[in-house]
Design a protein around this nucleic acid. Structure first.
Lengths: 84, 84
DNA sequence: TGTCAATATACGCGATAGCGTATATGCGTT
DNA sequence: AACGCATATACGCTATCGCGTATATTGACA
């Protein structure tokens, strides 16, 4: 699995969606685990504006993921995606 | 520089604060760049509850940082810090 | 193509973000 | 100790969260 680079909410949401599906969870079951509604997970994965940071961290935790913060790499796949 | 692992808002805030200082920016100058108030940056770095995800992404972008999402690593330094 | 599970979207609600503005507190340097 | 810059915190405001609940839409498979 290649690096999952996120530079905006949409990319982050897409990563979360992939991870959730890989874990074979529905938005509802994931939401239940972290006491968030299915609708809230939906917004998070859609990269909707103004989702709470705590919502992200809770989802990451439930999916057993963690964040790495690092300087932006140049000409990554994610950067090219940014154009679209 | 070792990996900057964030599993909760506080760790994330601490990482951002370090990065901002390394870039020699004040909360105010950083905030100006991304149209957020100094007080908002303060809350973000403090790991205050219910900060918006967009606030985080804007700050990362201004600091030229990106996020990597990956499976949680075992017995990392960050995990030990979690105990305190 | 019809059915059902999964996801997206809507309503009113209480809580709170980030806003502008302002002030208080903290911290380093002399 | 005193000064100045940086950071934390406060007020009233509007917008929007996530809530419970409910429904519309989508998508996969028989």
């Amino acid at each position: 699995m290649t690096d999952q680079i996120a530079r905006n909410e949409k990319q982050l949401g897409a990563i979360l969606r992939r991870a959730r599906r890989q874990a074979d969870l529905t938005q509802e079951t994931l939401g239940n685990q972290i006491h968030l509604r299915q609708a809230t997970i939906s917004r998070l994965e859609a990269g909707a504006p103004a989702v709470q940071l705590s919502t992200l961290m809770a989802a990451l935790s439930a999916l057993d993921l963690e964040l790495i913060v690092r300087p932006r790499s140049k000409s990554s796949a994610a950067e090219i995606e940014d154009l679209f």
